[in-house]
């Protein structure tokens, strides 16, 4: 019994996901991702629902969930900003740009704005090093960042 239920559309998606694997448990990350993207967080209740789909214990789901950085126990903002701070971006001045972004959003790195619009995270290499400095907002990569470009990008998001 869990207080979380998948929507009809999600149930269909889950059937499709499960058909890709000979063993159910392989659908663990896809299901966690499905919930994270829909709810912007993975609640204990959702983990119970996932465990029922995969025929494993909720504790097991949690042990996997807590291992991966893209899953969040606490709700993240509508726009998840992952700001790359690894070496190629560091060499291209990402530290100052990250500071600028945090200041613009009036939050500390790791926090979410009070209107739940933006979450700002420091991120390790995102594999777009030739466009450094770069960040990823939700599914979109933004490279060759400058303070002006960051302002423009953030201002353009509803």
């Amino acid at each position: 019994m869990s207080g979380f239920t998948f929507s009809e559309k999600q149930e269909k998606e889950i059937t499709g996901i499960l058909s890709k694997y000979p063993f159910k448990k392989s659908a663990m990350l896809p299901l966690l991702t499905l919930v994270q993207r829909a709810e912007r967080a993975i609640s204990p209740e959702a983990m119970v629902a996932i465990s029922e789909k995969l025929d494993c214990s909720p504790a097991y789901v949690q042990s996997v969930m807590s291992f991966y950085t893209m899953y969040h126990a606490e709700k993240v903002g509508k726009y998840m900003i992952l700001f790359c701070i690894n070496i190629s971006c560091q060499l291209n001045g990402c530290d100052k740009l990250l500071e600028h972004t945090a200041k613009k959003l009036n939050i500390k790195v790791g926090e979410t704005t009070s209107d739940e619009k933006f979450t700002l995270h420091r991120e390790e290499c995102l594999a777009d090093c030739t466009n450094a400095p770069m960040m990823r907002i939700n599914d979109t990569y933004y490279g060759d960042l400058t303070e002006q470009r960051i302002d423009q990008i953030l201002d353009s998001l509803d």
Binding site: K25, L29, L54, S63, V64, F67
Partner: peptide
């Protein structure tokens, strides 16, 4: 889902099997 270690082949397999 965000883990550098999953580029290591045996960690990749564990991850694909739904594990840490």
């Amino acid at each position: 889902a965000g883990a550098y270690i999953c580029g290591e082949e045996s960690a990749l397999l564990n991850s694909l099997e739904g594990e840490r």
